[in-house]
Computed example of a mutant assay.
Amino acid sequence: MQATLEQEIKELVISSLALEDVQPDDIDPVAPLFVEGLGLDSIDALELGLALQKRYGVHMSADAEETRRHFASVRALAAFVAAQRTL
């Protein structure tokens, strides 16, 4: 289940941010999404947050530190989405 969700989130990252030269298999699920790793920025975070809300109905906290932890990697996002689904 977690691996499937990670795959979905990788595809969502690529489609919502129009990463044309990136394939889902290119994204390491534990690599950072920001700065190193994919090198995303704050605008990308907003776009991705909106895409996650639309697709999974999750709500991001206004707490920047907590949100930063969720956006640390694809695996962290998958864990967050999975936890939100059980609420």
Rank of each mutant, 00 (worst) to 15 (best):
A31E: 06
E47F: 04
M1F: 04
L77E: 02
A62H: 09
D44E: 06
P29G: 00
A51I: 11
M1T: 12
L5F: 11
V35N: 05
E11Q: 15
E66Y: 08
D28E: 07
H59R: 14
T67L: 04
V81Y: 04
L50A: 08
V81T: 08
F34G: 05
S61I: 04
Q2C: 02
A72K: 13
A76R: 04
L50C: 06
R75N: 13
D26T: 09
R55C: 02
E20K: 13
L48E: 10
V35T: 12
D41N: 15
R68P: 00
S42R: 04
E36V: 07
S73P: 05
A18R: 14
L77R: 05
V74D: 05
E20R: 09
A64L: 12
A45D: 06
D26E: 01
D25H: 11
G57S: 06
L19P: 08
S16C: 09
E20D: 14
H59G: 09
S15V: 03
R55E: 14
V22F: 07
Q2W: 00
L12S: 11
L87M: 00
Q7H: 14
V58K: 04
I43W: 14
Y56R: 05
G57V: 00
R68Q: 15
Q23R: 15
D41T: 05
A18E: 13
A79P: 00
G37Q: 10
S42D: 08
E20Q: 13
G37W: 10
L5I: 15
L40V: 08
A51W: 08
L46D: 08
E20M: 03
V58R: 04
F34N: 01
E47S: 10
I43L: 15
H70Q: 13
E36T: 15
T67A: 14
V30W: 01
R69W: 04
Q23E: 08
L50Q: 06
D41G: 05
F34I: 02
V30K: 03
A76V: 01
D21T: 13
E20A: 15
L33P: 06
L52W: 11
L33Q: 03
K54V: 01
